[in-house]
Amino acid sequence: MGGAERGGPGRTGALVSGIAVALGCVLFLGGFAWAAILYKPYTVPTDSMAPTIARGARVLAQRIDGDEVRRGDVVVFRDKVWGDATMVKRVVGVGGDTVVCCDRQGRMTVNGTPVEEPYLQSGGPASPGGFSATVPRGDLFLLGDHRADSIDSRSHLTKDQGSIPRGAVSARVDAALWPTDAFGMLPRPGSFDALPGGTSEPGPIRMLGIAVVVGAALILGGAAYGPLARLATGRTARRSGNGKAVAPHG
């Protein structure tokens, strides 16, 4: 009976350990699997988005429908007019917007509203040269953050006002993976908050990352329970054995 009672806590610990490992596997593997469905990695080949995204940076982009895109989003797209290569640019205008540059402070305006762009290379101006475009319905107007070294909507103004159709967008950049000093979520600018629609919310990448980390911790903690419990039990048994009284003979 006493042995069964002493074994009770051990069995309970083993059960909790097993549950922790199982739950950890669900979170760890599920987080990775769900991220693989929602996101795709992409290497940025140019410095047109510097300093936000450097040349050669590895980013994680959420697969989205073009209808989900908002001003300020950094998107991955492909358009034959632009050379049929996959590109990364920032959306600064949507269908119906009039985008003009520059005002007296060197800022771009959208529908007459000046836009502060703290993400620009060297802090601005919004463009080395002036431009004006009215974005057709269902289209997007895109610029690189390195305005002096970006081939973007300004270079294609003679074709559909430099815009691309929303359907050309395949993903929205949520985070940077490499280089390590840039690792983390891509900042969501407040530059377009004063305009209708605002900027989109980040995807679930942070939540998925937490699930993976918590899952890994549960797996390691649960797997470590058995050896640690046996070690603790062995030490307790040795201490008990050393403390036993020796019965006198005769």
Rank of each mutant, 00 (worst) to 15 (best):
M108V: 14
T12G: 12
F77E: 01
S122H: 15
V76H: 00
G243F: 03
M49R: 01
A176G: 01
G144L: 07
A245K: 12
A211W: 10
R188V: 15
S191P: 04
L142D: 11
T43V: 15
T113N: 04
P189K: 08
F77L: 09
V21C: 10
I19T: 12
G95H: 12
D160A: 14
G112V: 13
L23W: 01
A171V: 05
T236E: 13
T46M: 04
D152Y: 07
M207K: 11
P41K: 08
I205A: 14
S150V: 10
R239L: 12
G215H: 08
M87H: 08
H146L: 04
I53Y: 07
Q105I: 00
V88R: 09
A176M: 12
D174G: 02
L231Y: 03
E68Q: 13
L142W: 08
A223Y: 01
M108A: 09
D139M: 10
G112C: 12
L177C: 04
A229W: 08
A54K: 12
A247F: 12
A54F: 03
G221T: 05
V110N: 06
G184T: 07
N111Q: 12
R166N: 01
G197Y: 06
R188G: 03
R71A: 10
D152P: 03
Q161A: 15
G243V: 02
S240V: 12
G31E: 07
G13D: 06
G72F: 07
P118L: 06
P165K: 08
G209V: 10
A126Y: 00
R55H: 08
Y39R: 00
P227L: 13
P45M: 05
I164K: 05
R71V: 08
R107K: 13
R55D: 09
M49I: 01
I53G: 02
D97R: 08
V246R: 13
A133E: 11
M185I: 06
L186A: 05
H249Q: 15
I37L: 11
D160I: 00
H146D: 14
L177M: 13
G31A: 06
S155E: 09
W82N: 13
G13V: 02
H146P: 07
T98R: 15
T109K: 08
G144F: 03
W82A: 14
F77C: 02
T98W: 02
I219T: 05
M49E: 14
E68G: 00
A57W: 08
V212R: 12
G243I: 00
R104D: 15
I151S: 14
A224V: 06
